[in-house]
Each structure stands twice: as structure tokens, then as C-alpha cells.
Write a protein that binds this DNA or RNA. Structure first.
Length: 537
DNA sequence: CGACGGGACGC
DNA sequence: CGACGGGACGC
């Protein structure tokens, strides 16, 4: 536990190769899927010969999962044999293979608000990819939620994306495999499920060439990738290898700064998945009513830059230009067809960008008729709060789009101010210091703050973004269903700084009170050294 | 088919 | 006024 506790789970690949391993070729081939932290070519201790194994550690599980998905069964330049790529066991587990080890990379354990239904849970997580099941554990007697549950994906990449991007209050972890016992033997009979043959043609998918090493017993070639996949319909890890990007969900591709703008543009059609299932994106755009207007009028939050806005609007196919007056926050964007423009308006109006504020998108050349959606888009303080005036579909759309942005290396959460020690964030009335990393969850608590949001609660991600900026933040949360809560800091100085800056300010439209917390209600006194425990053991 | 180096570091 | 969160899977 000394050096290990900050490495994310499932971010290391175990790769089977032949001898004669060239490390650089691996760095080159795998580097495009993410940030490589370590490459280790395993050699025999005495003879110094390759053992045919390479470990590659990525900075995140999603990068490793994507690399596995894309590289398994492929040939690395300079190496004759196709490689096999697996998520490595933790060092602790050694080489033992759990019969249900896929659960370690497909299934998440989650803390779930008691009020949330399984349907809501599923909807919340299916933005990251296809879900096998979403379950909430309930009390056997009264059916009440126990406050936790599981979501299982079909692909490790999607599980990792969910883990890394879902609201932190879910406290997501990769689930430990746990099987009632003895059941699901048929797991081992069905194999295949995903194969290259089911991949549609097109630039985002590798050609129909089948990897040379698919193994002899892949089962029938044609297999539909329907939505009704059963519980135990796949088994070996091979199933999610080698399958290219997922189809009916957008795939985010490489993550963060490794994602080039070109990659982004290549994935234009995937944004069409924002809220539609079934139709192809182009068809869908064609089906938009011809408003007769190709030009959009955009009202952007002050501080948003030309570059970011252009990147956002170019996610919708057909952008001709996007010109922002950074002084006024007014932009005009033009698309090649009225349908594209209508599509862009539909997708981006009300879009939360950056965190805590929204874009307003109108047709530029027709009379401005405010509609319901616009009205709700403007009161951002309601976003994400139960009873919000936003329809669920809209929230989903916004979340999905924000996710795409993040994966594209655009940070939707902040807009830099000219001074580079503080920045303007549109959810807050004052300039704030730049975000700082959180302290590990097991850090020792130095100071607790009591927070009140008046009159209503503020989404947790916004609180986190605000309170982390003073450093050493361990956690911040509101009590469920309440407008008050706590922030925990690992140092008193940082906590006091948070009070001095944030107390009395406005966050997402709510007035904030930030005070030193009183000691917890009925906590066992850890004072002094009196340990006159009468209990044995 | 198939599994683990080096360096790590607060007292 | 506004005070204390949740954590592993059916018998």
C-alpha cells in the first residue's frame, strides 16, 4: 500500500508477443490510445531473453481498455505474430484467473441515491455505452433501496468511461467478481458476440480484414448486435477485443489531449447519437424541417473563446464558419444546409457550456420567437436538480454532449481569464483560483466546513469544482435531498482560504454560506489517550 | 497460447 | 435560519 494507492485500477495491459520484442514499436503502436506511464518488456532473469510478454501501464483504465479493444489480434510493426492484449491482473492477484474475471472490468459498484430507480440508473449510465444490466439492491422485506448497486457493461472501454466520467457521488469502483455459485456455466458455451464482420463499413472502422488470430472456435460468423443481449451471452474476454468502436453509442476514442481535432472531426457522425437511436445521422439531419435558414445566432457566456466555440459547433456536420465576438459573447455560425443548421440549433441550444451556464442558439434570419425550451435553458440554476424544468431528454442530451467535449480534449468546465492565477467561471460571481487536484480519499481530515446553499441545492460537480480550488479538498457533498452539507479538507489553511473566498458568494445562482463545521453530533471522543476499553479483543 | 522489474521513502 | 452520506451481490 506504500507506493500503489494512487494507480487507477485496470489501467495496465498484459500483452502476449513473440520473442525479439522492440519496446519502441510498442510505445508507438499503443501511445495513440492514451498516456503511457510505463512499458515493461519482461525478460528472463538469467538468460536475459524475452519471455514474450509486455506490460503497458496507461494513465487511465479507459485508455487501456481502448488500446486492448483496438490492438488485440493485430500485428505490431517488426513483430511477425499477432499479439494478444488483456487487461492485466493486479500484481497482488498474480496470474490467477478468476472464472468471472470479466466482471472486474465490465461491472461497476456504485453508491446510488435511495430515491433512484433502476430505470433512472440505467439511463444515467447508458450514455457511456451499452449496458448489460443495472441493478439496485433492495431490502428483502420492504423493498427499500439499500443505497448501492451494480451496472454491468458489455465492453471494458465503456465501463471505464463510466467510472471516470460519472458523477463522483456515485463513488464508482470496479466491482469485485461475486457469483452466487455454480450457475452460469453456459457462459462458456457462447463465445463470439462481437466480431469484425458486424462492423459497418466506413472510415471509423477497420476494414473487413479479419485478424489472423481469431481462434478456431469463434462460432458462427454472423451475429447481430441487437439490444436484447442476454445475461450470459458472452464469455471470454475475446468478445470485446478487436471490435472497433462501438456502433450505437458514440465512442470517444483516445482521451484528453491525445485526441486530435482531426480525430474529433472524423467522429462527427457519432454525435448524431446524442439522442437518437435507430436512424443514421445523415438521414436524421435530412429529416429536419427546412427552416430556410442556414445561419445561427449564438449567445455565449462571456469569456468563451472563439476557438472553443468553433470546435463545439464543428461537431455538427456542415459548419461553414463560426465567428464569435469575444467582447459581446455574440456569435454567428453558418451551415451548408438549413437542415444542418436546424440540427445544430436543436442540439446546442441550451447546451451547458461551460459549466453552470448555457448557450442560446437561434436562427439568425427569422423572427426570434422565444419558446419553452429557451426559457428553461436560461435558468441554469435548475439544472440537475429534482423538479427542474428541463425535460429529462434535454438533460441527457446535454450530458452526452458534454461528455463528447471532454473526450475531445475540450474542457467544458472552465474558461480562462486573462490573469492566469485566477479564472472566471460562469457559475460564480467572482474570480476563482485555478482548480487543484483532490486529496486522496483516505487523507487525514484537518478541517471540515459546513456549507449552506440558499435557497436551493447546487449540483455536486459544481460544488466540487469550486471547493477544490483552494487545494487539499478531500470531499464535498450535500446531504441527500438537502441544501446543506460539508466540505472536508486535508489542511486547515486551504479550508480557511475556501471560507474567506467563497462565503457569501453566489454559486449557480444560489447564495453560499461557508463556515467551520461544528464537531459531529454523536461521535466517539477520540480525545487524548484514554483507551480504557472494557471490551476484549 | 498466458503473468510480474525497478523503484518506491511519510516515520 | 441550516448540522452530519452511502459501501458488496438470493436461501
Amino acid at each position: 500500500m506504500a507506493y500503489n494507492h494512487n494507480v487507477p485500477e485496470n489501467c495496465r495491459l498484459f500483452i502476449l508477443v513473440g520473442k525479439g520484442i522492440k519496446e519502441d514499436a510498442f510505445r508507438e503502436a499503443f501511445g495513440k490510445y492514451g498516456k503511457i506511464e510505463d512499458v515493461w518488456v519482461v525478460k528472463d532473469r538469467r538468460s536475459n531473453e524475452d519471455k514474450g510478454v509486455v506490460y503497458i501501464t496507461f494513465s487511465k483504465a479507459s485508455e487501456a481498455a481502448l488500446a486492448m479493444q483496438e490492438m488485440n489480434g493485430r500485428v505490431v510493426p517488426g513483430h511477425p505474430k499477432p499479439i494478444k492484449v488483456l487487461i492485466a491482473n493486479s500484481k497482488r492477484d498474480g496470474s490467477v484467473r478468476d472464472p468471472h474475471e470479466d466482471e472486474k472490468i465490465l461491472r461497476l459498484f456504485l453508491i446510488i441515491p435511495k430515491s433512484m430507480s433502476e430505470d433512472e440508473l440505467r439511463r444515467e449510465f447508458e450514455q457511456y455505452g451499452d449496458i448489460d444490466y443495472a441493478t439496485i439492491l433492495r431490502d428483502k422485506n420492504n423493498g427499500e433501496s439499500k443505497g448501492f448497486g451494480y451496472v454491468k457493461f458489455f465492453r471494458p472501454y465503456h465501463a471505464a468511461l463510466a467510472l471516470e466520467n460519472c458523477d463522483r457521488s456515485f463513488k464508482p469502483k470496479f466491482a469485485e467478481p461475486k457469483m452466487p455459485r455454480g450457475d452460469r456455466d453456459n457462459d462458456y458455451e457462447m463465445d463470439y458476440q462481437y466480431s469484425r464482420e458486424t462492423r459497418p463499413p466506413g472510415p471509423f472502422f477497420r476494414g473487413p480484414d479479419r485478424g489472423p488470430d481469431r481462434g478456431p472456435d469463434r462460432g458462427p460468423d454472423r451475429h447481430e448486435r441487437g439490444t436484447k443481449r442476454g445475461f450470459s451471452e458472452y464469455s471470454g474476454r475475446d468478445d470485446y477485443h478487436d471490435d472497433g468502436p462501438p456502433r450505437s453509442r458514440f465512442s470517444h476514442g483516445p482521451v484528453g489531449q491525445h485526441h486530435s481535432l482531426d480525430d474529433l472531426e472524423q467522429r462527427n457522425d457519432e454525435i448524431a447519437d446524442l439522442n437518437l437511436v435507430g436512424e443514421g445521422p445523415m438521414e436524421m439531419i435530412q429529416n429536419y424541417a427546412n427552416s430556410g435558414c442556414q445561419r445561427l445566432h449564438v449567445t455565449a457566456p462571456l469569456g468563451l473563446t472563439q476557438q472553443y466555440l468553433t470546435r463545439l459547433f464543428s461537431l455538427i456536420p456542415g459548419l461553414e464558419y463560426c465567428d464569435l465576438n469575444e467582447a459581446t459573447g455574440i456569435a454567428y455560425a453558418r451551415y451548408t444546409t438549413p437542415q444542418c443548421a436546424a440540427y445544430a440549433k436543436d442540439k446546442l441550444d441550451g447546451f451547458e457550456y461551460p459549466l453552470g451556464s448555457r448557450l442560446i442558439v437561434r436562427f439568425a434570419d427569422v423572427p426570434n420567437v422565444p419558446d419553452l425550451k429557451t426559457a428553461s435553458a436560461m435558468n441554469f440554476e435548475n439544472y440537475g436538480i429534482p423538479g427542474s424544468s428541463l425535460e429529462r431528454d434535454e438533460c441527457d442530451t446535454i450530458r452526452k454532449a458534454a461528455l463528447i467535449l471532454e473526450k475531445a480534449g475540450i474542457n467544458p468546465d472552465r474558461v480562462l481569464a486573462s490573469d492566469n492565477s485566477v479564472e472566471r467561471v460562469t457559475y460564480c460571481n467572482i474570480l476563482l483560483p485555478l482548480p487543484k487536484p483532490l486529496s486522496p480519499e483516505d487523507s487525514s481530515l484537518a478541517q471540515r466546513l459546513f456549507i449552506v446553499c440558499q435557497p436551493a441545492a447546487v449540483p455536486e460537480r459544481i460544488l466540487r469544482d469550486a471547493f477544490c480550488r483552494f487545494g487539499d479538498l478531500i470531499d464535498v457533498y450535500l446531504l441527500s435531498g438537502r441544501n446543506y452539507g460539508y466540505a472536508k479538507y486535508a489542511s486547515k489553511e486551504c479550508a480557511m482560504k475556501a471560507i474567506s473566498v467563497l462565503h457569501g458568494q453566489s454559486i449557480a445562482g444560489q447564495r453560499l454560506k461557508v463556515l467551520e463545521a461544528e464537531p459531529p453530533k454523536d461521535e466517539n471522543r477520540r480525545e487524548g489517550r484514554d483507551r480504557h476499553d472494557s471490551h476484549s479483543e
